[in-house]
Design a protein around this nucleic acid. Structure first.
Lengths: 160, 160
DNA sequence: ATATGTGCAAATTCTTTGCATTAGA
DNA sequence: TCTAATGCAAAGAATTTGCACATAT
C-alpha cells in the first residue's frame, strides 16, 4: 500500500506555498491559474488562460493582476513571442529552457536547455547585476512547410 | 559584378539601394529614417525615431509603416525589450549581435557576437525552416548600482 | 501614368488603473 | 479584524487601418 502518496500535483502545491511564503493570498482565481499553468505546458496569453478558467470564477483583469504578482515572486515567467501579446508559463525553478515558435501556426516546441548562461556570465563580468535574459527561436515547422507545399507549391506560376 | 560604388555613407546608400532592389520607393521619410538608423546606433522606439526626424517631414504613422516595410526586406531588425514598445535598429548584414539592457536606466550595451547560432542550427535539424531568433540580456548597470548605493544603500546609516 | 507611399482620423488590441466591495489570514 | 485581492468600468499606450491625396519611378 502506498503510504502517503506524493501530492497528485506537487508543482501546484509548492506554487501555492510559494504564494504564502511571500505573504500573498491563495485565492480561487490564483489557484485556478496555477492549476492550469502547472498542468498544461507551454506559455499562454492572458486571454488563453482566462478562457481556460471556468466561466464566472474571475475577471480577465484578475488574471492580469495575478500573473503580474506571480511574476514578481518568480512563480511564473513572462515570454514574448513578438506578436503583441505576452505569454506566461510556470517557472520550473531555475531550470532554464527555451522555445521554438512556428511563425505560421504558432505551435511551440520546448528546448530543455539553455545556451545563454555564458552570456549572463559575461554580463556579470561587465559589471551588471541581477542578470536575466530572454531568448526565443522562430521558424516554420515541418507541418506548415508541408501544407504550404501542398497548397501553392514553390512556384506560384504566374502566367506570362 | 557591378562596378565598385564609392562608399560615401555606404550604409545609407546601400540601404537605399536595397529599397530599390525590392521595388520599394525611396521617399523623404524613408531616407530620414535610414539616415538616423545608419548613423546613430542602438535600437530606437518608433517614437524616438519620429522625434529625431525634422518636424514636418512626416507623420508618426509613416514611421510605423516605413519600419514595417523595411523589416519585411530585412533592412531593419525589430527588438523587444519587454517594456511594451518595439525597437528598431539597422540590420548590419547577417553579423548578428545582442544587447544588454539596464533594467533601471534603459541604457543599452551591444555585444558583438552571438551564442545562439548553435540553437538555430538545432532548430533546423528539428525540421524548422527560415529560422531566426531574438535574444536580449537584462541587468542593472554599474552606474545604476552606484546610484542606488548612494541613495538608499543596504544600510541607511543613521548617523550617531 | 500609375502603383506606391503618405496624412489624418479613427479603430483595435493589449494592458493598467480607480474605487467600492469581498474575502483570505 | 484588517489588509490584500477582486470586479467593473474606464483610461492609457502602442500599433493598425481606411480612405482621399500626393509623389516616386
Amino acid at each position: 500500500m502506498p503510504p502517503s502518496h506524493p501530492p497528485a500535483n506537487s508543482s501546484l502545491e509548492s506554487a501555492l506555498q510559494t504564494l504564502r511564503d511571500h505573504q500573498a493570498r491563495v485565492t480561487e482565481p490564483r489557484r485556478a491559474i496555477l492549476t492550469i499553468l502547472t498542468s498544461e505546458h507551454g506559455p499562454f496569453t492572458v486571454e488563453e488562460i482566462y478562457q481556460r478558467i471556468e466561466k464566472g470564477v474571475c475577471d480577465l483583469v484578475t488574471v492580469y493582476r495575478s500573473l503580474a504578482a506571480m511574476e514578481e515572486i518568480n512563480l511564473v515567467r513572462r515570454c514574448d513571442f513578438g506578436d503583441g501579446a505576452y505569454r506566461y508559463e510556470f517557472n520550473t525553478g531555475d531550470h532554464h529552457h527555451h522555445h521554438i515558435i512556428c511563425r505560421t501556426c504558432r505551435s511551440v516546441k520546448t528546448l530543455d536547455f539553455c545556451v545563454a548562461d555564458s552570456l549572463e556570465r559575461m554580463a556579470r563580468q561587465l559589471g551588471y547585476e541581477n542578470v536575466t535574459h530572454t531568448l526565443e527561436i522562430f521558424g516554420v515547422c515541418v507541418n506548415c512547410q508541408k501544407k504550404a507545399a501542398r497548397a501553392g507549391g514553390p512556384n506560384p506560376a504566374v502566367p506570362g
